[in-house]
């Protein structure tokens, strides 16, 4: 399969007056053409920072990509000049934000906001731009597009606004769409509609999607692969099936157990404790203090990446054969 995006050893720091926050501390993953990768994790784990880095939208200062590569269609985006990056943003890579009500400029009409990206990047006439805008509104399911084009954001509901934000993101036919918690701010029924829209769009345009969420229900619905982030690192990555039915990392298991399910009569088990301080992140596995299977090694050395299958790998010392022996012994007792 063709890799459209490859992120290698990405590090992002933020300088604040309290010290340097190591928000992303070595993230590796790739994205295949036409697939949907979900990045899940608690808030503050670095998932938004990761995608903002891909977009080249890390505010500098205080933020900075200190190490790593982001290779998109053979080019390292971290080395591109801002001007070149601008030609990629909105054209090859687009982004959708969490709260559609704040993502649209309240003082400009929907039409203006839809068409300005197109006018910026493509040499189109006003008529063509409008035609394309109408097509997009129809694609995302907005009735009366002709009339709606002249309206302002506050005249739209949350779900409708998010459809417009999606239309804006797709108007230049990008190959990669990054969606940062696109359904979090919406009602549950609207959430389902927006997720269906994503599937429909992917079918129609073949766009690759990176979806950030902390909602495993969303992941289950539309992701092909899942990356689990914790304290600035991807601790487990695999296909949806592998993560949901054969997760290996205690954190991933904990996440899955803290989601209510209708089919299993089980008590919900929250993960005790809080994530570590990223001002001075631990040298070992950041999950150690909260991990029910923590070993001495976990606190001392960050786990090696263990390949569980071709698509599934996990950063956890429990995969080491010495730990397996320890586990076996514990089961016997």
């Amino acid at each position: 399969m063709e890799k459209i995006l490859e992120v290698k050893d990405l590090h992002v720091n933020f300088k604040t007056y309290g010290g340097t926050v190591q928000a992303v501390r070595g993230v590796d993953f790739h994205l295949n053409k036409g697939e949907t990768l979900a990045i899940v994790g608690e808030s503050g784990c670095g998932k938004s920072v990761t995608v903002n880095a891909i977009m080249g939208l890390i505010p500098n200062p205080p933020g900075k990509i200190t190490r790593g590569k982001i290779i998109f269609k053979g080019r390292d985006l971290t080395r591109l000049k801002e001007k070149k990056m601008r030609a990629i943003r909105g054209v090859d890579i687009s982004m959708i934000f969490q709260d559609p009500m704040t993502a649209l400029n309240p003082t400009l009409t929907i039409g203006t906001q839809l068409m300005e990206g197109l006018k910026q990047h493509r040499n189109v006439s006003d008529g063509e731009a409008k035609k394309r805008a109408l097509e997009m509104l129809e694609l995302v399911g907005i009735p009366n597009p002709e009339e709606r084009l002249k309206q302002y954001p506050h005249q739209f509901s949350g779900g409708m606004s998010q459809r417009i934000v999606i239309a804006i993101a797709l108007i230049c036919e990008p190959e990669l769409l990054i969606a940062d918690e696109p359904t979090t701010a919406l009602d549950v029924t609207i959430q389902a509609q927006i997720l269906e829209l994503f599937e429909r769009i992917q079918e129609a345009t073949g766009v690759s999607i990176i979806l950030i969420t902390h909602d495993l229900g969303v992941v289950a619905k539309i992701a092909d692969r899942v990356a689990v982030m914790y304290a600035g690192k991807i601790i487990e990555i695999g296909s949806k099936r592998e993560i949901f039915y054969n997760s290996q990392h205690p954190y991933t298991k904990g996440l899955l157990q803290s989601v209510p399910r209708l089919d299993v009569k089980e008590n919900l088990q929250p993960i005790e404790g809080t994530p570590p301080d990223l001002f001075s992140p631990p040298t070992g596995c950041p999950f150690t203090p909260r991990c029910p299977f923590a070993m001495e090694v976990c606190n001392k050395v960050y786990p090696a990446s263990f390949k569980y299958s071709n698509t599934h790998s996990v950063d956890c010392w429990l995969q080491d054969e010495r730990a397996q022996k320890l586990l076996a012994k514990a089961v016997k007792n």
Binding site: I88, R89, G90, F97, T102, N105, L108, E116
Partner: peptide, 22 residues
């Protein structure tokens, strides 16, 4: 710091346009 400014940047607009228009 508003999202719509971030959105305008994500569209690849030039800084000048973002400042004046948005």
């Amino acid at each position: 710091t508003q999202d719509y400014i971030k959105m305008a940047r994500a569209k690849g607009l030039s800084p000048w346009k973002i400042i004046v228009k948005h």
